[in-house]
Amino acid sequence: MTNHPTGPWPLPLPPGEEPPMPPLSVWPTGQRDPAAQLREAGCVPGTETDIDLIPPAIAAHAIATYTHPGDLVLDPDCGAGTVLVEALRAGRHTLGLTARHRWWTLARANITATKAAGAWRDGSVLDARPTLLATIRAAGLVGRVGLVLTALRTPTGDDALGPDHDSSSAFDEQLSATVRYCEPLLRSGGHLVVVAHPRRHPDGALADLATRLITAGASAGLVPVERCLALTAALRGRRLITRASFAERRAAARAKGAPIALTAHREVLVFELAHDAELAAAAAGTSWPDDAVAAPRQRTIGAAYRPDGRRAA
Rank of each mutant, 00 (worst) to 15 (best):
C182Q: 00
L192Q: 00
H275Y: 11
A295K: 05
D50E: 13
T2R: 15
T215N: 15
G257C: 06
T49A: 14
I260W: 01
A170D: 08
V85H: 11
R102I: 08
E48Y: 05
P202Q: 06
A134Y: 07
L126H: 15
V195W: 01
A170Q: 06
I260Q: 02
N3K: 07
A280I: 07
D308I: 10
H165W: 12
P202Y: 04
A312I: 10
G140Y: 05
A312Y: 10
Y305E: 09
L97R: 03
A59V: 10
C78Q: 06
T156Q: 12
A251R: 15
H61Y: 14
D33W: 10
A35C: 08
F271D: 00
L97T: 03
P289R: 05
L279N: 09
G146W: 00
P45K: 11
K256E: 06
G157W: 07
T6L: 08
S169D: 05
A41H: 12
A90D: 13
D77L: 05
D276S: 15
P15H: 04
V85Q: 15
R187C: 03
L240A: 13
A280W: 06
T211F: 03
D308N: 15
D172R: 02
H275Q: 15
A139W: 05
D166L: 09
L231M: 15
A234T: 12
R180H: 06
L161N: 01
S287L: 08
R311G: 09
L235S: 14
A261H: 12
T156P: 03
P163H: 14
T131C: 05
R121N: 14
S188M: 12
P224K: 02
A128S: 03
V268Q: 09
A139M: 08
E48I: 12
R310I: 11
R239Y: 10
D308W: 08
R108H: 12
A57L: 03
A35L: 12
L141E: 07
R297C: 04
A258M: 13
R243P: 01
